[in-house]
């Protein structure tokens, strides 16, 4: 059944869409999830009983580039949302795909980084620093990956015109999630990488 966002919003007490309210609530909740992981890392970042210290292995130029890529994926995401609002299907699909590619580049960078760190002697079980570093950045990486899957799945479904409900709203929701994952990285980049122990 064809249900437009406006029709839907009409029916609610606040005039706001259910899905969007739900999404913002979820993101509020996610703040406490990442807050906990970041705090654990902050507490343990200097505790290296064995293996390399952060200063010894962080590759700031490399991570700067991949952070930049993720940041720019927020721009392409926002362009996708605005194309979706203009009912421009081709533009939407295009920008969503670009966003997914940038996200994949970021995740690829993370895989490379993890491998490099591992080869330099930092395993998940090596030290408190290792455990908390991989847990925090791993959780973030999983979030990005989930985002990529959502983006590509949406494009695939959209190409066959099978999107149930309002299209532009779905894109907007994926966008909110995506930007959130990006702002978490903004924090991680500063607290984890740029500020030394």
């Amino acid at each position: 059944m064809v249900e437009t966002a406006t029709h839907d919003a009409h029916a609610t007490s606040t005039g706001l869409s259910n899905v969007k309210l739900g999404m913002w609530l979820f993101l509020g909740s996610e703040c406490l999830l990442f807050g906990g992981l970041i705090s654990t890392y902050m507490l343990y970042r200097g505790r290296v009983s064995d293996g390399p210290t952060p200063e010894q292995i962080y590759d700031i130029p490399f991570t700067s580039v991949s952070s930049f890529v993720l940041l720019m994926s927020s721009l392409t995401m926002v362009l996708a949302v605005s194309a979706a609002h203009k009912r421009d299907d081709r533009g939407t699909n295009l920008w969503l795909t670009v966003t997914a590619l940038l996200g994949a580049t970021f995740v690829g960078g993370q895989v490379y980084e993890f491998t490099a760190f591992y080869n330099e002697g930092l395993g998940f079980t090596t030290s408190l620093f290792g455990s908390s570093f991989y847990t925090l950045t791993g959780f973030h990486g999983v979030h990005v990956t989930v985002g990529i899957i959502m983006l590509l799945a949406f494009v695939a479904i959209n190409k066959r015109s099978r999107v149930p409900g309002s299209k532009s709203e779905s894109v907007e929701m994926i966008g909110l999630y995506w930007h959130f994952v990006d702002i978490v990285w903004i924090i991680i980049f500063t607290l984890v990488y740029l500020i030394p122990v």
Binding site: L21, W24, L25, L27, G28, S29, E30, C31, L32, F34, G35
Partner: peptide
């Protein structure tokens, strides 16, 4: 809603 979560965190 969002900033409540953020500031609480």
């Amino acid at each position: 809603l969002f900033y409540t979560g953020l500031f609480l965190a």
